[in-house]
Design a binder for these strands. Structure first.
Length: 876
RNA sequence: GGGAGCAUAGCUCAGCUGGUUUAGAGCAUCUGCCUUACAAGCAGAGGGUCCGCGGUUCGAACCCGUGUGCUCCCACCA
């Protein structure tokens, strides 16, 4: 078969993916083999493939494919997350385009649109993963709002409520006054704003001198003074100590508020006195709780002043900010006004200035749940890669705060709390159950009067069940699959969700399965652009992944992203890595072409061409590298493993081995050489397969008829390695490079033949490599000599001297220069080694092996010097 | 403000337990080659104050301290 000039990935990739899928290689069911299970971090159902997914899923695929070839029953579970906020926003936007306002729809109508949207557009990303070659078990595709899954989420809520871990409580949230909705922290964008810092003097109750002075606070939000509940100073602030415990009067309305002391206050900011408005500031609310201050909510949900404000009722808070200052000034409260730049939150959706607002939310108490989860990581039952994230994890877990799980959204798992008209409620799986429970205290309660909580649960409240619920661990307890696949083996995720997701999965794992959810966690880096910016949709700096796959091939994309990404380190994405991957494809493709040509010329080869050394060397070199790679894979050093394989294939196999065994022009090749070469190539392809599955499968089948596919082929055991043979190969490489360098430096044309004379004490050492050496440096003859050869190029390598004799030789001075440079270098080196050896303390303290090595270095350097000096003498 | 991390060739980064023949790779650069697998290639070469300073050690890119510069996460000071 005629092969194309270059490797053409697109057809090959779709062909093999379809084939693998058809054969069901990626499907897993429990059997006698040990399991290796991985659950995908479920991408948002709204998502499209970006570089982060590409990195993350390539890593998982490498681990899963490697495990499969190691003989594990590998199971990689795909799925998507309902992503309440993101999806609801998309659906709202879609409706808006169609001229439908969310507020005009009932909850059920809205959800119907949402499901339609999900069925149509959701899960595009899963299709895209197929393009990348991900070996997922598609029959297991899960969704966090599947029926069983939904029920489990509700069951967990009810269970935690019964155990007392879930409670209802007030909380400050970010409020969007335009959309009249709560915002999650992620939806608030902080911007620098030019504000004014007003210094306002409050009167103090009483008639003494201190009261006459009053107390001056600084604020950028003077309209909120109407909701003031206290003034707070630092306990050790000498200026105010005498005022603590007394009362101040709120300007304009003369409400009496206490002066309290707390270390929260920064003495050197503003005046060192802080007005406390618990209803309208996150931190003030905390102070309010601590000192049991009155909470005066002076604002309506649309941002206008409420009746509680007593002044400006019905006017917008930003208008009031302008209007209240002249009043304060007129009444003598304004001490001074400073220009001030501060950070203010704005709504991502409406750009409205966000208002902190108090509301009733559902919470999970974290204290008890977090304990086993912290211990599991600190005791290394769960291993983090890289381990540096352990510190971060501990710090967070030790300072963990309760988790607010309610969201003012419709798309998601609806909170299973049911309210009677009097405000009492029951937590239950259905309205019927709730009715029964409520009837115990309210026998006359009508079922129709019961209302379910309008809010949904935080997305993470469902995804924390992911590692076991994809196997129905909770909905069908103790089923065969959960017993077989759980705990899963490795979780691959981004460090930014270590708290949102990883920590919580560990907690849920212990709480509901009594066991850790995974044994290893591999944290990927963040993919950045060339300028170091995080790739994101809003910056528009994320390249179109499918276009890249079209251009370079999926294998090259996988190569490009993996070669630059050690665990936990950010990667700067650069297309040059993909080019390297594509070139690597071509390199292997061309090696295939070469070997295919040989097939036509198998026959009796010339006895002088003895490639036995090359074959034996490569066999050991290959096994040596297989060992290295296996150890790197164990340690999750995937990037290094790939580099090692790349260099083994390109340098050792293509550049050295194939050249060494290659027959001369139109010469036949021995059948044994051909067979062994194919065997090595197959092993190389297998080693690379987890990283670049498509091209390896393709070449594997083109090399010769195969009994099975590469992706299911088990690795063979690695035989013992003869390191002498490996070293002999390295020496041969060194000789070839050294002699080629001498040829170039002396301006010999590549085609100019030479006669190589070797002056050595160990002629035998050259037996095996003589013919290879001759071919690689274009020597027509190789012989030994006891004395320098006149009018030749002299080269000193290790302890031996080499003379390149040729008719075209011209004295250029280049060789003398090379020798003298080398000599100087050796002298310097020798001096360094001797300094060490002459240091008594070194000889006394260093390990014997180290000293032995230094002695060897000294002896080698001496021998080298002798060789070089003799060479120079021969020249002169 | 709290926490974590980084600084090694022009660029992007490896360098594991301190000692492996005076620090490695890819890209870029330079020289020579269109050699019947491959010019997206081959054969070579050059390129380093391992951020500065101090310390520990027989020995430091690696350990400790300190300074400088940068990055990320968390919290958002009225």
């Amino acid at each position: 078969m005629e092969l194309s000039k270059n490797y053409l990935p697109s057809e090959v990739e779709s062909k093999w993916y379809a084939h693998w899928n058809e054969k069901g290689y990626f499907n897993s069911t429990p059997d006698d083999r040990p399991a290796y299970s991985v659950v995908i971090p479920p991408p948002n159902v709204t998502g499209v493939l970006h570089m982060g997914h590409c990195l993350n899923n390539t890593i998982q695929d490498i681990l899963v494919r490697d495990a499969r070839m190691k003989g594990y029953n590998a199971c990689w579970v795909p799925g998507t997350d309902h992503a309440s906020i993101a999806t609801e926003a998309k659906v709202v936007a879609m409706l808006r385009e169609r001229g439908i306002a969310k507020s005009s729809l009932s909850r059920d109508e809205f959800l119907q649109y949402a499901w339609e949207w999900k069925d149509k557009y959701g899960g595009i990303i899963l299709q895209q993963l197929k393009k990348m070659g991900c070996s997922l078990d598609w029959d297991r595709t899960s969704f966090t709002m599947d029926d069983d899954y939904y029920k489990s989420v509700i069951q967990v809520f009810i269970d935690l409520y019964k155990k007392g871990h879930i409670y209802r409580g007030k909380r400050m949230i970010h409020w969007d006054v335009k959309a009249k909705t709560a915002l999650s922290d992620e939806e608030v964008i902080y911007k620098e704003v030019n504000s004014k810092l007003f210094h306002l003097r409050y009167h103090i109750e009483g008639e003494d001198a201190a009261a006459q002075m009053g107390i001056t606070i600084a604020t950028v939000r003077p309209e909120t003074i109407l909701g003031d509940a206290a003034i707070c100073v630092h306990p050790s602030d000498a200026r105010y100590q005498h005022l603590v415990g007394r009362f101040a009067l709120v300007p304009l309305i003369n409400r009496r508020i206490p002066i309290i002391a707390d270390e929260y206050v920064t003495p050197d900011f503003g005046t060192g006195a802080l007005k406390v408005t618990p209803a309208h500031d996150m931190n003030d609310y905390q102070l309010g709780l601590k000192y049991q201050l009155e909470i005066i909510d002076t604002m309506e949900d649309d941002g206008t002043m409420s009746a509680a404000a007593t002044l400006f009722v019905g006017e917008d808070r930003l208008e009031v900010r302008k209007k209240i200052i002249p009043l304060l000034e007129a009444a003598g409260h304004l001490v001074k006004t400073e220009e001030y730049i501060n950070q203010v939150g704005f709504s991502e959706r409406t750009d409205a200035m966000v208002e902190p607002r108090l509301s009733l939310q559902w919470w999970v108490s974290m204290k008890t749940l977090s304990k086993p989860a912290l211990a599991a990581v600190m005791d290394d039952q769960i291993h983090f890669h890289p381990a540096k994230f352990k510190n971060l994890y501990r710090h967070w877990m030790e300072n963990i705060k309760d988790w607010c799980i309610s969201r003012q959204l419709w798309w998601g798992h609806r909170i299973p709390a049911y309210y009677a008209p009097d405000g009492s409620f029951a937590v239950a799986a259905s309205v019927e159950e709730a009715w029964e429970m409520l009837q115990q205290t309210q026998p006359d309660l009508l079922k129709a009067s019961i209302r379910q909580d309008e809010d949904c649960l935080d997305t993470w409240f469902s995804s924390w069940l992911w590692p076991f619920e994809v196997f129905h661990g909770l909905s069908q307890p103790n089923n065969a699959e959960i017993k077989y696949y759980y705990p899963t083996n490795t979780l691959v995720t981004a460090p930014e969700i270590i708290f949102f997701w990883v920590a919580r999965m560990i907690m849920a794992g212990y709480e509901y399965m009594g066991e850790l959810p995974f044994k290893d966690v591999y944290f990927t880096g963040i993919v950045r652009d060339k300028l170091g910016r995080k790739m994101s949709k809003s910056l528009g700096n994320s390249p179109d992944l499918l276009a890249l796959i079209d251009q370079y091939g999926a294998d090259a994309v996988r190569f490009g992203i993996m070669i630059a990404s050690p665990a936990g380190n950010d990667i700067l994405f650069d297309e040059s890595g993909l080019e390297q991957g594509r070139n690597f494809n071509n390199k292997m493709w061309n090696a295939l072409k070469l070997i295919q040509m040989w097939k036509l010329r198998i026959g009796h080869a010339d006895e002088s061409a003895k490639p036995d050394f090359a074959m034996n060397w490569f066999e050991h070199r290959l096994n040596h590298t297989r060992k290295e790679v296996a150890s790197m894979m164990e340690q999750f050093r995937l990037s290094e493993a790939l580099k090692t394989i790349y260099s083994l294939i390109w340098d050792d196999f293509c550049s050295w081995y194939l050249e060494w065994v290659k027959p001369g022009f139109e010469q036949p090749i021995q059948a044994a050489v051909y067979e062994r070469t194919i065997g090595y190539f197959e092993q190389l392809l297998q080693l690379l397969h987890p990283f670049m599955p498509f091209i390896t499968e393709e070449i594997y089948h083109l090399l010769q008829q195969q009994p099975s596919d590469l992706c299911t082929k088990p690795y063979t055991q690695i035989p013992d390695i003869d390191s002498n043979l490996v070293n002999a190969g390295e020496l041969l490489k060194q000789l070839i490079s050294g002699l080629r360098d001498a040829r170039i430096k002396n301006q010999l044309k590549p085609k100019t033949p030479v006669h190589l004379h070797i002056q050595t004490n160990e002629e035998k050492q050259y037996d095996a490599i003589r013919s290879i050496l001759a071919k690689q440096i274009n020597a027509t003859e190789v012989s030994f000599t006891n004395e320098p050869i006149a009018k030749s190029i002299v080269v000193a390598i290790e302890k031996d001297r080499f003379y390149l004799e040729t008719a075209e030789f011209q004295e250029t001075g280049a060789q003398l220069e090379t020798l003298q440079k080398d000599l100087a270098h050796q002298h310097q080196f020798l001096e360094q080694v001797r300094k060490k050896l002459q240091n008594e303390r070194f000889v006394q303290n260093a390990k014997p092996e180290v000293i032995e090595l230094e002695r060897k270095k000294e002896a080698d350097a001496l021998a080298r010097i002798q060789t070089i000096e003799a060479s120079i003498a021969g020249l002169q």
